[in-house]
């Protein structure tokens, strides 16, 4: 198993670094524009992009076994399950037209 011999090169690391720096500046810049609700979308989009780059290149997942992909994916998937099912409650609390919560308006 000679997996590390086809890992990323120094050049790729530098490119990744440049991209991360660029996105950092970009996200600050965008924050000062008024995009309405899209400010959040863009900020999160950029953060996800940065995270993906780090995972793929710095953390070598792009060059790793299927199992590593599966593991990284499982972590994210179950995180989304937590978000989605918890939010499902909060989003739908008002739908019945009765005040279901005493705590949140």
């Amino acid at each position: 198993m000679a997996d590390h011999h086809h890992g990323p090169t120094v050049r790729i690391y530098l490119a990744v670094f440049a991209a991360l720096m660029f996105f950092t500046v970009l996200t600050v810049w965008v924050a000062y524009r008024d995009l309405g609700p899209f400010n959040d979308v863009v900020a999160l989009g950029i953060a996800c992009t940065k995270a993906t780059i780090v995972i793929l290149f710095f953390m070598h997942v792009k060059y790793a076994s299927r199992l590593t992909w599966l593991m990284a994916g499982a972590g994210v998937l179950f995180l989304l399950i937590l978000f989605a099912f918890a939010m499902a409650d909060y989003v739908s609390r008002g739908w019945l037209g009765i005040p279901v919560s005493h705590y949140l308006q």
Binding site: F85, A88, D89, R93, L96, H102
Partner: peptide, 15 residues
């Protein structure tokens, strides 16, 4: 399925 412990907790009926 965790919400089945919270049916009477003020969790939304839809959830």
């Amino acid at each position: 399925v965790w919400g089945h412990h919270m049916f009477v907790s003020s969790q939304s009926t839809y959830a």
